[in-house]
């Protein structure tokens, strides 16, 4: 009886797929599911339903014609820069909740722009393991979060009391790719209104996409404010990794990690996006998700004993 559920799951094709194929399937599935207002792409119009009250966990622009939900970073700025409110409690609470449950696994499994970068990284071109100034550049995302998402949109307001979503306006490549390009392609009036800002955003997008072919997920590593929120929550989120004592410190996990995480020392580093490559590479199978419920903890203790 105890093995029945496991046997049933293994018969299902999805659970027989291992590692990166399974992750890719989840990434594509979640991107399609959260952007399934397909008629919007043809007409250049947005989904108008009440689902858009809800923020999605990943960086998914709400102006994407297919989007069924809201971008958490866009919503955070929209509420903070609105006339009525200065602090976005609802959106902040939702983001914190997502982070507490999954941490940066959201980046690795459910972010549409992460998926695009992962696909580009698969292109067979020479790879750069680490960018020059990598350590400093990784701090940039915290500055982006603090200045362009939290402080300036609420502080720099016009005479009416409205601010601007500065991250969306000047940086967000996800918005340019999933909202800007489809809308511009479908709507002639929008095309006529394009100017220097669109050119800047397009250059930034193309630069990041080109860079993503040689450096793994440059936007996630250096610029994403959502990653800056979820990253520190890796330490306490429900989805955590642990390294067993059977680890021989062979360095296999470190060699395959695309985010350059020092896996045996920091299994819950704020840079880890839970892609699972380290788990696949470990010859001792020493890296496992930490059990979260008592029953699993008991099982783990039995196995260890």
């Amino acid at each position: 009886m105890p093995g029945m559920r496991g046997d049933w799951l293994m018969k299902k094709k999805f659970f027989r797929w291992r590692g990166q194929s399974r992750r890719l399937l989840v990434q594509i599935g979640s991107a399609l599911l959260t952007n399934s207002h397909f008629s919007g792409f043809a007409r250049g119009t947005l989904y108008q339903g009440s689902l858009k009250r809800i923020c999605l966990p990943g960086l998914n622009c709400y102006s994407c014609p297919g989007a069924l939900g809201s971008c958490p970073i866009g919503a955070l700025q929209a509420v903070a820069s609105s006339v009525s409110f200065d602090v976005a409690y609802y959106v902040a609470g939702l983001i914190l909740l997502f982070g507490l449950l999954l941490g940066r696994a959201i980046c690795g499994w459910f972010c549409p722009f992460g998926l695009v970068q992962d696909l580009l990284w698969r292109l067979p071109v020479p790879k750069l393991h680490r960018m020059p100034g990598d350590r400093l550049l990784r701090l940039l995302k915290y500055a982006v979060l603090f200045l362009l998402v939290l402080v300036l949109p609420a502080a720099l307001t016009n005479a009416v009391g409205m601010g601007e979503p500065l991250f969306c306006k000047w940086i967000c490549p996800s918005g340019t790719l999933f909202a800007g390009l489809p809308v511009v392609a479908a709507d002639g009036n929008i095309r006529a209104a394009l100017g220097g800002l669109f050119r800047w955003k397009l250059i930034l997008l193309l630069g990041l996409l080109l860079l993503a072919t040689v450096v793994h997920r440059p936007f996630c590593k250096y610029l994403c404010p959502l990653g800056a929120i979820y990253g520190p929550l890796n330490q306490i989120s429900l989805f955590r990794y642990q390294v067993a004592e059977s680890c021989t410190h062979c360095g296999g996990c470190r060699a395959v990690c695309p985010m350059q995480v020092e896996m045996p020392q920091k299994p819950n580093s704020s840079e880890c996006i839970r892609c699972g490559r380290c788990r696949e590479a470990c010859p001792q199978q020493a890296i496992t998700p930490e059990p979260i419920c008592r029953r699993e903890k008991r099982k783990q203790a039995c196995r260890d004993a």
Binding site: K52, C71, V79, G175, G180, I190
Partner: peptide, 20 residues
Amino acid sequence: EAAVVLQKATALCLECVGIG
């Protein structure tokens, strides 16, 4: 606040698109 999110998300965000 959810109403503000809905209002913003159902109108085309000119900043996101790159018009400003």
